[in-house]
Design a binder for these strands. Structure first.
Lengths: 121, 121
DNA sequence: TTGATATTTCCATAATCATCGAATCATGGA
DNA sequence: TCCATGATTCGATGATTATGGAAATATCAA
């Protein structure tokens, strides 16, 4: 994933409604949700929602497929993984950045990427 | 981490220079880098870099400390973890979203969050 | 205090982005 | 074909954001 794609993806998520939509889709799973349901869920006019969904799709964060009259949107989990991988890539120059924590990115709250060292704050 | 903080963080990263700075800092590790070095590394005027660093700091993504005449910036790894956790929270409604992949977010390329199912694409 | 260095603040300009009603397009049933 | 439904495109408006030079602030050394 290159920088311009990452910027586009981050910019797409950096907006109230789009962030909410993306999370709904992440939680909805691969089956996704139709545009109308998303608009109603967030209380946003259809034309506005369409604009935001287009942004997310153009950023490669969501997939769309038509099902009869509805257009179903779903999260692109692969893109999400690439995005987060880009941010943590080569963390701490590849060296162990903290004596007690592994550098390879792990999102689980129980195993944070690493804790800042005291001598830094 | 609440939505407004996440939006601020994502918005801060959704800009060419700021994304580049953040990655430099992530790779630099907890020791961080002075503002001047960042400006020079990216070929950006000092005043512009200062603006971008302020954005990152205000978004809670970087820490700053003064060291003599320099101001040293470093990545806030805790914030980064919270940010990514927010995006993947309650993925697929907590249910196993793919029969062969675990849902808890894992960034390692070898163990992606999960793969989209064929019947979805 | 004077001078040099490092960084930030101020300011005006230009560019990008969000909103939403109205019009348009696509689909499917009667 | 006609109509209803679901969604997108168009267009004007208002708001936010990026840029960089000049001036101001902070630190340190002599």
């Amino acid at each position: 994933m290159e920088a311009t794609a990452v910027i586009k993806a981050l910019g797409a998520l950096a907006q109230e409604h789009r962030l909410a939509v993306f999370r709904l889709l992440v939680q909805a799973g691969p089956e996704g949700l139709p545009a109308g349901a998303l608009a109603e869920a967030l209380g946003v006019p259809a034309s506005s929602m369409s604009f935001h969904l287009a942004q997310l799709a153009h950023a490669g964060l969501v997939l769309q497929r038509r099902q009869s009259r509805s257009i179903i949107y779903s999260a692109d989990y692969g893109a999400m993984n690439l995005l987060m991988g880009y941010l943590t890539e080569n963390c701490c120059g590849g060296a162990s950045c903290a004596p007690d924590a592994a550098c390879p990115p792990v999102l689980s709250p129980a195993k944070p990427l690493h804790s800042p060292r005291k001598d830094v704050a």
